[in-house]
Simulated scan of single mutants.
Amino acid sequence: MDINELTALFADSMFLVIIMVSVLVTPGLILGLIVAVFQAATQVNEQTLSFLPRLIITLLMVLFVGNWLIQQLSDLFDRLFMNIPHIIG
Rank of each mutant, 00 (worst) to 15 (best):
Q39H: 07
L73F: 14
I3D: 07
N4R: 06
I19L: 07
N83R: 10
W68N: 06
F15R: 11
G66L: 03
V21P: 00
L24S: 08
L55H: 01
I57L: 02
V21K: 01
M14V: 11
F10R: 08
L55F: 13
S74Y: 14
T7W: 12
L33R: 03
L33C: 07
N4E: 08
Q47I: 07
V62E: 01
F77D: 00
V23N: 02
M82D: 12
I87S: 12
M61E: 02
I30C: 05
Q71W: 13
T48A: 09
M20I: 12
M20R: 07
S22M: 08
I84L: 12
W68S: 10
F15Q: 05
F15A: 08
M82W: 01
M82Y: 08
L76F: 15
N67P: 00
N45W: 06
T42N: 11
T7A: 12
A11L: 13
M61C: 13
L59I: 15
A40W: 08
V35N: 00
Q39V: 06
S13Q: 07
L49V: 15
I57T: 14
R79N: 07
L33E: 08
L24I: 13
L49F: 10
V23G: 03
L69E: 03
T48I: 13
A8M: 10
I70P: 00
I70L: 14
E46D: 14
L49R: 02
I87T: 12
G66C: 04
D78N: 13
T26V: 15
I87P: 07
L52F: 14
F64P: 00
P53N: 03
L33W: 11
V35W: 07
L9F: 14
S50D: 00
V23Y: 03
T48H: 06
T48L: 10
N67L: 09
N4L: 08
F77P: 00
Q72V: 11
Q43N: 14
I57P: 11
I19K: 06
T48W: 03
I84R: 06
G89L: 03
F38W: 11
A36G: 13
L31T: 06
N67W: 12
H86S: 15
G89S: 10
N67V: 14
F10N: 04
Q39I: 09
P53S: 04
G66D: 08
F10H: 05
V21W: 00
V44Q: 13
I57W: 01
E5W: 02
R79K: 14
A11G: 02
F15Y: 06
V37L: 14
G66N: 06
N4G: 05
L73S: 11
I30Q: 01
M20H: 09
M20N: 10
G89K: 07
M14R: 04
D12M: 13
Q39L: 10
Q43I: 02
G66I: 09
V21D: 00
I30Y: 02
N45S: 12
